[in-house]
Amino acid sequence: MSSAQISPPVARARGRVAALSRSRTPDDPDFVEARRNLTALTLEEHIERVLVKAPPLTDEQAERIAYRLRGGGATSQHQQQ
């Protein structure tokens, strides 16, 4: 488990997902949106923590990452090289 502290926005999003999970079906639009929001917030904060420690990305690296975030599909480590 990560030692990073949970931010207030992520904590609120987790709480919303937990609350909705008690009374909603997995395909309920509000529940789906809440899970999507939690995922996005968690990913955004993780990316920020990584980028603060890393050297700047090249344009090509940034484009590859942006492509994946837009739904361009995952690739294995071997295909990236």
Rank of each mutant, 00 (worst) to 15 (best):
F31V: 04
P55W: 05
R36W: 03
P56G: 05
G71D: 02
K53G: 07
L43Y: 03
L57K: 02
Y67L: 11
A19P: 01
H78I: 10
T39N: 13
R22L: 14
G72C: 01
R68K: 08
A19V: 01
D59Q: 09
V32A: 08
H46A: 14
F31L: 13
Y67F: 12
Y67Q: 12
E60R: 12
T75A: 10
V10S: 05
R16Y: 00
E63P: 03
A62T: 08
N37K: 13
E45Y: 01
R35I: 02
L57F: 06
S23D: 10
T25R: 15
M1Y: 10
L57S: 03
R49S: 11
D59L: 11
A11S: 11
P56C: 05
P29R: 09
A66M: 13
Q5H: 08
D30M: 09
I47L: 14
A4W: 06
D30T: 02
S2V: 07
R36L: 11
D30A: 13
A62R: 15
E60H: 14
G15R: 06
E63F: 04
S7K: 01
R70K: 13
P8T: 11
I47K: 12
G15Y: 01
V50C: 09
R35G: 11
A62F: 04
S21N: 12
R12Q: 14
R35H: 05
V10L: 15
M1V: 10
R14W: 03
P55L: 07
R16L: 07
V52Y: 05
M1A: 15
D28F: 05
T42S: 15
D28M: 04
A11H: 05
E60N: 09
E60D: 14
L41C: 04
S7G: 07
P55N: 09
P9K: 06
Q79R: 11
P56H: 06
T75V: 15
R12L: 13
Q80D: 15
E33L: 10
G15W: 00
